[in-house]
């Protein structure tokens, strides 16, 4: 009853626009389609099969980072150290191989490093009470310092066994399918499953929406926030392992600038910086949208030195769009509530 009376008050166009603005995932999908259409008319090369394939392949590292970032954003935090953690974990896996450890041990070491950095972030935030972005900024400085001192500014090389070419996607698994694609899918399934179907996921949303409310409902807020950072550390480690394979060497500045791309992708995908909102599917589409925009700009012939400016601009635009979406969805909720109470809208 209520919903029909709500629908009667709106035109179809109005409803479609509202729906697009309210549902972040639909919004980013619309943006992606828009970019593709724009590209199809101006630059036919863009829709070329190999270009699209490269585009998706290039977006995978940012995609995995964005998924980890989404978990943190949903729980009301932010992780500025994610790029540096990725570089550090790449370094750990490479150095472990050089040390003579078997492959699985090297990968485990990298994952452990990621979890450790995440735990460190979580402890700084929950035990010392540092604001999230200050703690992770300090961690960024700390981790990059450690990496520089450790490598002495010389890239780590000589660890590339054939398996690493597969891990990095340089040698495809079967046909066009590469291992990073499979890994990204697995990470998406795991994190999406956790966010959507487990108690832990519900707790992430609860803590992100209202810490006080969650605490009063008996959620162990500090532990939940720590878990979120450990997940983002693990995601960074997975991305780092892929990066080590793809780059074939690990320079100390490998992760520079990746944190802003991860945040931008997550925010494009509808994750709210105020917490409590976000989707893994959104992060995936966000990463592809970001890669598509950068790809398009490169195809138009803008030099790659403009990339930083473009990504910064996209981040501002995405946050603005997100803000508008929040305002509209607030209004819609208000209207629904009024209809439910029988007040004419």
């Amino acid at each position: 009853m209520e919903t029909t009376s709500l629908k009667k008050n709106q035109t179809v166009v109005d409803r479609v626009v509202t729906r697009l603005l309210v549902d972040p995932t639909l919004g980013v999908l619309a943006l992606l389609v828009l970019i593709c259409l724009l590209a199809a008319f101006t630059l036919p090369v863009f829709l070329n099969g190999s270009n699209l394939y490269n585009l998706v392949n290039n977006s995978l590292v940012v995609m995995i980072l964005a998924m980890g970032m989404t978990v943190v954003l949903v729980s009301g935090g932010i992780d500025l150290s994610i790029g540096t953690t990725m570089a550090l974990c790449a370094g750990v896996s490479a150095a472990a191989m050089n040390f003579g450890l078997p492959l699985f041990a090297a990968l485990l070491a990298a994952l452990a490093m990621g979890a450790l950095v995440g735990l460190g972030n979580g402890l700084l935030i929950t035990r010392l009470g540092l604001p999230d972005f200050i703690a992770t900024l300090a961690m960024l400085g700390f981790a990059s310092g450690v990496l520089y001192i450790w490598t002495k500014g010389v890239p780590i090389i000589g660890y590339m066994v054939p398996e690493f070419y597969i891990i990095g996607g340089l040698t495809p698994l079967a046909g066009p399918l590469t291992l990073p694609m499979v890994i990204a899918l697995l990470v998406a399934l795991v994190l999406g499953g956790i966010l959507g179907f487990t108690r832990m996921g519900t707790h992430f949303f609860a803590v992100g929406s209202s810490k006080t409310g969650a605490m009063q409902s008996g959620v162990r807020v500090d532990r939940v926030r720590m878990q979120a950072y450990i997940f983002s550390g693990l995601a960074a480690a997975v991305a780092g392992i892929i990066m080590a394979g793809r780059n074939t060497n690990v320079p100390a500045d490998l992760g520079n600038g990746y944190e802003i791309q991860a945040i931008a992708a997550a925010v494009i995908g509808g994750a709210a910086l105020s917490g409590g909102r976000g989707r893994i599917l959104g992060a995936i589409l966000g990463a592809i949208t970001l890669a598509a925009a950068v790809n398009l700009i490169n195809l138009v012939g803008v030099p790659s030195s403009y990339q930083k400016i473009v990504i910064g601009g996209i981040l501002v635009a995405a946050v603005l769009a997100n803000r508008i979406s929040a305002i509209v969805s607030g209004k819609v909720r208000q209207r629904k509530a009024m209809v439910l109470e029988g007040i004419p809208a």
Binding site: I78, L80, F133, G257, I260, I263, V267, L273, S274, K308, I309, I311, G312, G313, L315, V316, V319, L320, R323
Partner: peptide
């Protein structure tokens, strides 16, 4: 808009 996101973006710009 959240201040550290805006300034993170202008940092890059």
């Amino acid at each position: 808009i959240n201040d550290f996101i805006v300034t993170l973006a202008t940092l890059n710009i």
